[in-house]
């Protein structure tokens, strides 16, 4: 059942042709899904660089877009914290506890119609490449544990999709997700850290480099990661 749920999310976020589409297309599908299935009042997807919100690439409307924009302006708020920390920041009661955490933001008119804010990083460990923001309105109930769990699954799948798109391989099959049990070996994360230093790139790019190299050599990512960690293979030497 839970595995089916992940597959349902993957199917919903990919087009009928099975492709992720352009980043904006994926992002707007993501927003639609969050409104219809997670039942959020508003949803927005932003891309990040260096932990800062660079641009909102899709949103369900002004309610959420204005809210994210105001956070960028103040450099404060749940989305900013989620982007910097790489972990989800959930504040169902913005006017209550949220006021203590982000006083300027919460008293801004852009926040006046938002009741709860839920920011999910599209992240790989410490590095986020994007952000999924969900909000509830004044008349809505707060998101339940099930709704939040679904949003977490959505953000994991969206990370995978966005990473593929950033590497310009939109129509590739969804690689085994990092989150799936077969690929959850710590060796892959250790190797991504080593490759990041070898190539002097972010870990997300290092992960992508590992995948590309593995597919070029027709090996699994796990196998190649083992070779990197045992220092039998290095990107520094191969000139890759």
């Amino acid at each position: 059942m839970p595995i089916d749920r992940r597959q349902q999310v993957v199917d919903a976020l990919r087009g009928v042709d099975g492709a992720w589409g352009a980043p904006e297309t994926l992002a707007s599908r993501l927003c639609d899904f969050c409104l219809e299935r997670v039942r959020a009042r508003g949803a927005a997807v932003s891309v990040l660089s260096n932990h800062d919100v660079v641009a909102v690439i899709a949103s369900s409307g002004n309610l959420v877009a204005d809210f994210v924009e105001a956070q960028s302006r103040y450099q404060s708020g749940p989305s900013i914290e989620a982007a910097r920390s790489g972990v989800a920041v959930l504040e169902p009661d913005l006017a209550g506890r949220g006021l203590l955490r982000w006083p300027r933001l919460v008293t801004d008119p852009a926040a006046s119609r938002v009741a709860g804010a839920y920011a999910f990083p599209l992240a790989y460990g410490a590095v986020s490449i994007g952000l999924l923001d969900l909000v509830t309105g004044r008349d809505d109930r707060e998101l339940s544990a099930d709704q939040v769990a679904l949003a977490l699954t959505v953000s994991e799948v969206a990370f995978e999709g966005l990473l593929w798109l950033q590497s310009g391989r939109a129509n590739d099959d969804l690689s085994p997700t990092i989150a799936s049990s077969g690929e959850q070996s710590w060796v892959i994360h250790q190797a991504a850290g080593m490759v990041a230093v070898q190539l002097d790139v972010a870990v997300t790019d290092a992960l992508q480099a590992l995948r590309d190299e593995a597919s070029a050599r027709r090996r699994t990512v796990g196998d190649l990661a083992e070779a990197v960690v045992s220092r039998q293979f290095s990107f520094a030497e191969s000139g890759a």
């Binding site: 790489g86 790989y124 460990g125 410490a126 990092i178 710590w186 994360h189 250790q190 190797a191 991504a192 850290g193 080593m194 490759v195 990041a196 230093v197 070898q198 870990v203 960690v229």
Partner: peptide, 12 residues
């Protein structure tokens, strides 16, 4: 995940 990434970076 972040801890394992950091271990890899320091090791390298």
């Amino acid at each position: 995940v972040a801890i394992e990434q950091a271990k890899g970076m320091l090791a390298e």
